[in-house]
Nucleic acid binder design. Structure first.
Lengths: 341, 341
DNA sequence: CTATTAGGGACAAACGTTTGCATAAAGTGG
DNA sequence: CCACTTTATGCAAACGTTTGTCCCTAATAG
């Protein structure tokens, strides 16, 4: 049996309430008894029972993170741990703990969100599932439960923090354009994912700003966001696609694409320039080193937590949104001026 | 105010205990009232308060994971999320939630472990910090609190699950030896980390089994386990080191090393064969594709959770240990028979 | 020297459940 | 038709805290 507050009280010959107030450092307790009680607490290695405490003050100091299941490739992606690290570091600093809930299906997500909010376990949650039409969101909104989502949402009542995906697309496209590229493939567009839509829009805008026409043929769709760059690029090339540059929606896609390009007997960046997004640690070690965009996932996490806190504090929801700036990192895979253009 | 069990009770004109028994599907409640109560629960969107429930039955269905802080590079390493995914998937299946606690320092760890165990929040914990002499461990052992550590421990009273590091070292070394290599550098030995010690021992044993002498000069020490392969290799080569193969303790180390090797005007694998450990997703995309050893971090996680559960169930500790087998994946970076040897 | 006040601490209710026990109603056997 | 068992439900205590309120003692003021 663990040592409780009454055990301490008995040993110190005071009441439980006094002990409680000692813990809370309540000024109504004389320093004499405070010291006495603290000493006994120390001796008996007492730690307050969080469950009981939570029950009375309706506060657990726990936030929930709901993330897409194991099945998804994204789990292996460095983006995820970095984001998590950002959230965790901030949460830690503020004395919050993190309840990690990974869900495999949409139904599971809905159920998990319901449980997390209604069971009193968490004081707020962060959602990593940026599906477009998310029924959990509406529920959360209706319940006035504090939450923020990672990734943009079009629902006006949700707080979110996102990468600057539009700008990412824009910057990369412009980078290519400035080097004389005109035929820039966009690899990895996934209609369901807002992320890639925003990136594509940035890409289009860059074209437009430089008086270039948008060619839908250069957009290569992909169902998943990561793993199949090799297949996509291979098929694209086999199909007669001959861009001078490839803007891949993810570094992994880019790596795969480069492999396919090499197999096709072409060289990067001389025949084809390539860039990815996310700036994974290996982008620098790749051969050739890969131009990419640092997404600053860690900041995304810290920001998300901060936002969640403000939402939790103000009962009045304020509907915040934040966009984390990204940094273009130019490496050899795209460092080649085009001549003919 | 959230809807409580008494709200349901009132509406259903029964007592709270009846509702409670309905939730527990207690056979002593007639099906008639069961249905009635369930219907009302549904209508009012009732979810039991986990905190209150935990308080009375002293069971939170939460396990804690204590992991080294954000600062550590390892956080970005795919090993971590995979492990986490393994734990999470298993936990999910068994109806457990995960409390993620990341600690920056050893002191913080000690404190966190203490809090997690004594506050009643978690029913068991998994430790990711495989430092050698860990004071938290002794505490946990003394308190008979259920826990398992990821990574071997020499304390006989701890349950652990680990990679087969000895074998990993052995297999890789043997792989090189069979190709005629005699001068195999061991890159990334870190005296503090059991992991690398075990791997080094495997490497030594392989040498011995093939009647080769161990040359300490070929062991390159590194403080961190991941990031500085480039610097290490560069310095090693500059120092006159001329192995024919490099066994790196981590794929990232290997990538860095290869970069240094290329810069030195040498080719992989013809001048120098290289292999890493962990089989990160990019090993296959690297140029040349990197020979590595799949560590099966996911299995590590599932196994850890299973072990934790058995420890939690049997109050009698059983001191289990498990070793997850690893799989050698041979790729181009080491696919080159040595002639002269 | 009495009346008032301030300080320090105790009491008890409350948080939302679960569960052992009591009890009322209904069914069963002799 | 009575005694007894079974079935279905309610009562109340308990889990370990926090916190509003009350009480006692001693100090201060008039």
């Amino acid at each position: 049996m663990r040592v409780t507050i009454t055990d301490i009280a008995k040993k110190a010959k005071v009441s439980a309430s006094t002990v409680s107030r000692v813990i809370a450092d309540n000024p109504r307790i004389s320093t004499a008894t405070k010291e006495k009680v603290l000493k006994i607490m120390e001796e008996m290695n007492y730690h307050p029972n969080m469950i009981a405490r939570s029950l009375v003050n309706r506060s657990t100091r726990i936030i929930g993170i709901v993330m897409p299941g194991v099945a998804e490739q994204s789990f292996k992606h460095p983006f995820f741990p970095e984001l998590l690290a950002g959230i965790a570091s901030m949460a830690n600093k503020k004395g919050y703990k993190i309840l990690l809930a990974n869900v495999a299906t949409v139904d599971e997500e809905k159920q998990m969100v319901e449980e997390l909010t209604l069971s009193g376990m968490t004081e707020g949650i962060i959602l990593l599932t940026s599906r477009d039409q998310d029924s959990s969101l509406e529920q959360l909104v209706a319940e006035h439960f504090p939450f923020v989502v990672i990734g943009r949402s079009e629902n006006p009542y949700v707080n979110w923090v996102d990468n600057d995906n539009f700008n990412i697309g824009y910057q990369l496209a412009e980078h290519f354009i400035k080097q004389g590229h005109r035929e820039i493939a966009f690899l990895g567009y996934s209609p369901g994912a807002l992320v890639t839509r925003d990136r594509l829009n940035g890409y289009k805008k860059a074209l437009q700003d430089h008086q270039l026409a948008f060619d839908p043929e250069l957009v290569v769709e992909s169902k998943f966001i990561t793993d199949n760059g090799y297949d996509l690029m291979k098929a694209f090339l086999a199909d007669g696609g001959r861009p001078t540059a490839v803007l891949a929606c993810d570094d992994y896609l880019a790596f795969g694409a480069i492999k396919a390009i090499h197999e096709a007997g072409l060289a990067v960046p001389t025949d084809l320039a390539v860039a990815g997004i996310n700036n994974v640690p290996l982008a620098d070690y790749h051969n050739p080193p890969l131009t990419s965009v640092a997404i600053n996932a860690f900041s995304l996490g810290t920001k998300a937590f901060e936002m969640l806190r403000t939402v939790m504090k103000n009962d009045i929801q304020s509907y915040n949104r934040a966009i984390i700036p990204a940094d273009l990192v130019i490496r050899a895979s795209s460092r080649h001026e085009l001549h003919g253009a």
